[in-house]
Computed example of a mutant assay.
Amino acid sequence: MSNIYVFGECMIELRVDKALNSSQNDTSSKILKQAFAGDVLNTAIYLKRTFPALNAHFVSAVGHDKFSVDMLNFLKEEHIGCDFVFQSDNKIPGLYAIETDETGERTFNYWRENSAAKEVMPFITQDVIGKLAEGDMFFFSGISLAVITASDRPLFWKMLAQLKSAGVSIVFDPNYRARMWETPEQAKEQFEKAFSLSDIALPGVDDFQQLYGIKTADEVYNFCQQFNFEELVIKNGEAEILCYHQGKQYQFSVIPVTNVVDTTSAGDSFNGAYLGARINKQDIDSALKIASQAAGFVIQHQGAIVPKVAFTQFIEKQLP
């Protein structure tokens, strides 16, 4: 049975509950709904929900506080492996608040100064790396890299090189967030290390536009020719998705969603369904289709993690 490890941060999510706030006359206060989310964790959850037979594991650090305990219980409810979610004695999870406008676009505020996930690398011993090396896939993102304390990044790269040498498939989604990096040059240096070690890359055109000034999927493809990817999937919002595998180009037209509620986790849910499908031996066309359908469903709901029953019922109708 396949084992997929995702590396990164889970945060406490606070979002404005539109349904409850619409009935309130007091505009000076807002009712917030609390949940848990994080880009790579979202990917793991949607992968597991879409393909329950696959094993998805989270690699991170939390604290011993009540939120951390609730977070671990949430992961277990989603059947995400927690053997490598370490607990810090003096740190806690990060937190973010999110609001969406009438088009579903998001505004975030973050509080992650004391996030335990920033200091996860000292927990990852050689014994832990040996166990991760028995897995099939290791997935991380640009946010995963940005969160790690800068002095610990050499430990991460050493770990990643060991996993790759052991035959683990390395997967990277740039997921660029400018405010998390000291300079664009620092982000470029780290991203290009990630690209050089990755077997599969899942970039969005918007990541490259912000960081490199690259504006089209074709330009992203040209940039990526300097790296040795086995598979390259270029996401571009509602525009066509381009995928390259073994010298062949695949094009997939996205059906626009008319009822966009919240675009949070659109890319994460796409990643999860796509990677799950590929691990499950589905061809690229089928993987792109189920991934696009998953993302389209998710953005019609509030929050990064949509109701489980509704998502599961939807996705079961889409699978062959």
Score class of each variant (00 low, 15 high):
276 G>K: 03
122 P>V: 03
19 A>P: 08
146 A>K: 02
27 T>D: 13
289 K>L: 12
220 V>F: 07
243 C>K: 01
49 R>F: 05
237 G>S: 09
47 L>F: 04
125 T>R: 12
112 R>G: 04
71 M>L: 13
196 S>T: 02
271 N>C: 08
50 T>G: 09
284 I>Q: 06
89 D>A: 15
279 I>M: 15
28 S>A: 12
303 G>I: 09
160 L>I: 13
296 G>E: 05
128 V>I: 14
4 I>A: 03
291 A>S: 11
43 T>R: 01
5 Y>N: 00
315 I>R: 08
265 S>E: 04
115 S>M: 05
154 P>N: 10
85 V>Y: 00
298 V>A: 08
159 M>W: 03
61 A>T: 04
206 D>G: 11
251 Q>K: 13
132 L>P: 02
304 A>Q: 04
288 L>V: 00
255 I>S: 15
203 P>I: 06
77 E>N: 15
46 Y>D: 02
28 S>F: 05
31 I>V: 14
46 Y>R: 02
216 T>G: 10
259 N>V: 04
194 A>V: 02
4 I>T: 05
196 S>D: 14
261 V>Y: 15
229 F>A: 09
128 V>D: 05
84 F>K: 08
265 S>F: 01
51 F>Y: 15
122 P>A: 07
156 F>E: 00
118 K>V: 02
182 E>G: 08
43 T>L: 13
297 F>W: 10
32 L>F: 12
197 L>C: 10
192 E>Y: 09
69 V>E: 15
17 D>N: 15
286 S>W: 01
183 T>L: 02
224 C>T: 07
